[in-house]
């Protein structure tokens, strides 16, 4: 079932095209990678997919809902942003609790969800620590945990492993694969790393806001590695 549909979207910043005539669909349960050099339009595309911004032209439909109904879509999406958006002055528990309330959970359910996710991502001991006191890897885990609090159907991640050491990256990928395999969660992510792209089912390659390739990751690596 194709439930994420991107039709002819274009986004300009002034006279510069950040994205131009982008078309693709994402199937349920797949890991979909968006790759490209810096300034290719990956983050703009992620913002449009998560309905943070509106395209100038074209349409994005998620479960049949467009930008006007973005609050309906919100429950289906879990989002991990490129830059940290956790409140650094607040504790891990507070950050997660506030987020759970925003997604409409009661106080007691929120506490249970936090407990379960902290156990899954192995940061129970850090729950009462401020975000500013955490390492980059643990912060990333907390951000992913926050995105998963409401059990979304789709997890959208913008450069989830950027700035992490190899061990943290591998650990994070084992979580991502587990979520995809066990829960059937659809994953959309952007990445710079070839080894991460190889873990995706399909890949969209962007360059200067234009689509350069759309196909399987195997096909991408075979044909494009070294050329993009």
């Amino acid at each position: 079932m194709r439930f994420i549909s991107v039709k002819n979207i274009t986004k300009r910043y002034g006279n510069v095209f950040a994205l131009e005539n982008i078309n693709f669909e994402v199937k349920e349960g797949e890991i979909f990678g968006i790759v490209g050099p810096n300034g290719a339009g990956k983050s703009t595309l992620i913002k449009i997919l998560t309905m943070a911004i509106k395209p100038d032209e074209g349409e994005v439909l998620i479960y049949g809902s467009d930008f006007k109904n973005r609050k309906k879509v919100a429950k289906k999406l879990g989002i991990v942003f490129q830059e940290t958006t956790l409140d650094v002055i607040l504790t891990v528990r507070e950050n997660l609790f506030f987020h759970a309330i925003l997604f409409g959970f009661s106080s007691s359910i929120s506490k249970n969800l936090i407990k379960n996710l902290a156990s899954f991502f192995n940061f129970e001991n850090y729950l009462n620590m401020k975000i500013s006191e955490l390492s980059g890897g643990t912060r990333r885990k907390v951000e992913i945990a926050r995105a998963l609090l409401h059990s979304p159907k789709v997890l959208v991640m913008d450069e989830p492993t950027l700035g992490l050491d190899i061990e943290s990256r591998n650990q994070l990928w084992s979580y991502i694969k587990e979520l995809n395999k066990k829960n059937g969660m659809t994953i959309i992510l952007t990445s710079h790393y070839l080894e991460e792209i190889s873990l995706c089912d399909r890949v969209l390659v962007l360059d200067s806001g234009k689509m350069r390739f759309l196909g399987s990751s195997k096909e991408f690596i075979k044909n494009f590695y070294g050329k993009v």
Partner: peptide, 14 residues
Amino acid sequence: ERGFLRPLILSPTP
């Protein structure tokens, strides 16, 4: 400006 509002506005909270 710094994107900290995104977790709020991309939640189902009106």
